[in-house]
């Protein structure tokens, strides 16, 4: 059993975006703070620190996680994907371009978490309905765009991908 007393720091090693990373964390260090200030992956943003806004969403061992509601020590040995990892994924370039074309982002602060959710969602559900996309996006707050551009971008990419696969 791993035990980490209060105030003590431990080394946390995990695979982030396909690369081994390690850094120090206390028991209470939030995964969001660990990714940003210890691993210097500033692409993950913090919007509320109570698990509602979704800006800090990352993929943790294949599941979506609010990194502000996750402890860094929970990530020991885990595989994490952040926006920086998604950026390296050529397969997501159509999604990024569609976001840009459809005005799916303005200030872009909420965008990294939304890309994590959208890519995870499209992998599980390649041909979603608009209602499903809206339901998925309802786990994120964006105050700039009114979400319409995101919905259009995700549906367009899904349609193109599905049509491409059917040809």
């Amino acid at each position: 059993m791993m035990r980490l007393p209060p105030g003590q720091r431990t080394r946390v090693t995990c695979t982030v975006n396909g690369q081994a990373h390690s850094g120090f964390a206390e028991s209470r260090t939030l995964l969001s703070d660990f990714l940003r200030h210890e691993l210097h992956l500033y692409g993950t943003h913090v919007g509320c620190e109570h698990g509602v806004c979704g800006a800090c969403t990352v993929v943790l061992d294949g599941r979506l996680a609010r990194s502000c509601a996750t402890l860094a020590v929970q990530a020991e040995g885990a595989e994490i994907t952040t926006v920086e990892g998604l950026a390296a994924d050529e397969g997501l370039e159509p999604l990024r371009q569609a976001f840009s074309r459809h005005g799916a982002l303005q200030c872009g602060f909420c965008t990294p978490g939304i890309l994590a959710s959208a890519s995870h969602f499209l992998a599980a559900r390649p041909d979603p309905t608009e209602a499903e996309v809206r339901d998925m996006l309802s786990g994120h707050l964006c105050r700039c765009t009114g979400y319409e551009g995101m919905v259009r971008a995700i549906l367009e990419v899904a349609r193109e991908t599905t049509e491409g696969a059917n040809q």
Binding site: M1, M2, R3, L4, S27, R28, L30, D33, L71, E76
Partner: peptide, 17 residues
């Protein structure tokens, strides 16, 4: 908005938990 300090335990079995 950061947690107060606590001890973190990650049991390897239900018995430990």
């Amino acid at each position: 908005m950061k947690p107060a300090a606590f001890e973190y335990c990650r049991p390897d079995s239900l018995a430990e938990a």
